[in-house]
Amino acid sequence: MEFRQLNYFIAVAEEANLTAASRRLHISQPPITRQIRQLEEELGAQLFHRSSKGVQLTAAGKAFLSEAQRLVQIAKSASEKCRAADRGEIGQLMVGHYGATIHAAVPHAIRRFQKARPDVSVQIRRATKREQYEQLRDGRMGVGFARHYLNDPDLETICVSTERLYAAARIGCLPDTSPGSFKLATLEDVPVIVFPQGGRPSFADHILDMLARANVCPANVDTAEDVFAAIAMTMISDSVCIIPESVAELKWPELECVPLDDPSAVSPVNCIFLKRGRAPVVDAFLEIIVR
């Protein structure tokens, strides 16, 4: 049984006339008649009563019509879903995140994508960079987010946004500076906290490199496990911690956050994905977030 035969049968049944069905299908009558005969032979039942006035469904034809219509509709729906999946309009997307990217960059990117592709199911998973590398390769994850990644021959990284950096310290403990701004030079001989401890290259490396380029030498540098540990350490010490804007905007109690007055005081947010062989839904995601 072929879908072509089902389409011919449905057209003749609904038009109750071979000539009308022929016009509807844009083909001549003989192929329609031949295919319906073959269908009847395969089913072992007569589907139409034929007369000079036209055709009428037999009892078997009436029973078969509803099922034929349902089968054709299922096939049509399956074809549409297949094409939609190939365009990245439906499916599932697993998004990995590491570090403070979850506070603003990741939700913002996902909201934009869901607005454009509402039929794609998006899940978010916290994953170290090593876990992201592994899960991107084996297909469990579509894209990952972090601030810094190692170069990898199988993976590609793009910068999707940047964040301004802020100096954070316990209220009353920030070194003297101009109101509303903080110069990197002010950190000379000041204790500094950086984060995280793992995931090199990392945000901690970025901050230390920025200080080195500015020829600023802190009194000492402590490394916290993650942003939350860094904030806690800052609240119980006289140290200054450099944090991204999205973290500063969380309005931590007992913490004063001032933007760094330096053009280099920004941090990237990067997205990582497979260079080749990635799912269409990943391409759809990338097309939207890099606009």
Results as ranks from 00 to 15, higher is better:
V122H: 11
T162I: 04
I27E: 13
W252A: 05
D262M: 01
A167M: 09
L274D: 12
I231E: 08
A146T: 07
A248C: 00
C271G: 08
C271W: 14
D138I: 05
Q35L: 01
Q46I: 11
R37I: 03
A116D: 14
S178F: 05
F228A: 05
R111Q: 14
N151I: 02
L93V: 09
Q69A: 06
A104D: 14
G142H: 08
M141H: 11
A146V: 06
E42S: 04
E254D: 15
A204F: 01
V55G: 07
I288H: 06
R37T: 10
V190C: 02
D283W: 04
C271Y: 14
I10M: 06
A75R: 15
E254V: 04
I32F: 03
T157P: 00
T157R: 13
A168G: 12
Y8H: 09
V190P: 04
D86W: 03
A219H: 12
P218E: 08
H49L: 10
D86A: 14
V221M: 02
E249D: 07
A21I: 01
P179T: 12
M141I: 07
E225C: 00
E163K: 10
F285V: 06
R140E: 10
H148P: 00
A21S: 03
A104T: 10
L184M: 12
P263Y: 10
P268L: 02
D262S: 11
V247I: 11
D189P: 00
R87Q: 15
A59P: 03
F9Y: 14
D226M: 01
V216P: 09
T177S: 15
A219E: 15
A169N: 11
V269S: 06
R291G: 06
S161L: 11
L211A: 09
I171D: 10
Q92I: 00
I272Q: 11
P280L: 03
L6C: 04
C159D: 15
L250W: 05
F145D: 13
A230I: 01
R278T: 10
P179A: 13
H49K: 12
R50N: 08
D189M: 04
D205F: 01
A127G: 07
L57K: 13
P191I: 01
H26Y: 00
D176F: 02
H108I: 07
A248R: 05
A100K: 09
V240P: 03
A204C: 03
F48I: 08
E15A: 11
E131M: 06
V194G: 04
I289Q: 02
F203P: 02
R147A: 03
L155W: 05
I207C: 04
E256Q: 13
